[in-house]
Design a protein around this nucleic acid. Structure first.
Length: 261
DNA sequence: ATGGTTGCTTTGCAA
């Protein structure tokens, strides 16, 4: 059984004490981080390695940036999403691991926000999603367990927002964004949280402003998408919501699965 | 009512 977690940490250097406390409490095997907002050289790896994790990063200066922490040894690491050599934004890292039942793959992805709609940011988001689908379709042919974990910046359904009417003009809830997310499901990927928990008000993000956390005015945008070979091994999924109530929290919380690989 | 907060590239930008 392997515990795999996705967490948009919103600045790993600002959040390092928070991260170390959470690692000790949650005891994950593999952690997919997004928005590390750090270059690789400044990533605070030493304290994390002291807890027994291997650390692989794909950072850039100031914003974006993803990483994978793992108690399992990496067999292979791939940085960057294929399909556009001119894209310099650090939003994708893939790790390959070995288990008793064979290889499995874990991706930490930070999908573009896409706001404001009407600027070049929105077509960049949709183009990135199209590239992700091409990559995912190619990887499916491997017939391996694959976990695509990350901040998708997509609210899949109205039930995934406390106030869906407030998001109708937002890139996270545009029909094109939601359709592209559904296309990933049509390829054969399973939304782990939705597959195991149909409870309402299941959110992963609460804005810092306006007392969103106190009002539970959240949205569900952090997802772990599972290939068929991974979905058949899914044990449980959970949202570690209490972390949002900690001192100096990220605006996202960790989303965890247990996988029987 | 176009607000509010956070982190980094900082006195603006992205989220």
């Amino acid at each position: 059984m392997v515990k795999i977690v996705s967490w948009n940490i919103n600045g790993v250097r600002a959040r390092i004490d928070n991260l170390l406390d959470w690692l000790r409490e949650s005891q994950p095997d593999i952690v997919c981080l997004q928005e590390i907002k750090s270059v690789d050289e400044q990533f605070p790896r030493t304290d994390i390695e002291a807890l027994g994790y291997h650390v692989e990063t794909h950072g850039q200066k100031g914003f974006n940036g993803v990483a994978i922490l793992s108690k399992l040894k990496f067999d292979e690491v791939n940085r960057g999403l294929t399909g556009d050599e001119t894209d310099e934004q650090a939003r994708f890292i893939e790790g390959v691991f070995s288990s008793e039942s064979g290889a499995f793959r874990v991706v930490s992805l930070y999908l573009p926000n896409g706001n404001p709609v009407g600027t070049e940011k929105f077509p960049y988001k949709l183009g990135w999603m199209a590239r992700l689908e091409l990559w995912a379709a190619q990887r499916l042919s491997f017939e391996e367990p694959i976990v695509l974990a990350g901040d998708y910046n997509v609210i899949p359904q109205p039930v995934d927002a406390k106030h869906p009417e407030n998001w109708v003009n937002d890139a996270l809830f545009q029909p094109e964004s939601r359709q592209s997310f559904r296309q990933l499901e049509a390829l054969g990927f399973t939304d782990a949280v939705r597959a195991t928990d149909d409870a309402p008000e299941t959110y992963t993000f609460w804005d810092y402003t306006g007392g969103s956390w106190q009002k539970n005015n959240g949205i569900r945008i952090d997802h772990l998408m599972l290939s068929p070979e991974a979905a058949s091994k899914l044990g449980s999924a959970s949202i570690e919501k209490h972390v949002r109530g900690w001192e100096k929290p990220s605006d996202h919380v960790p989303v965890a699965i247990h996988l029987n690989v």
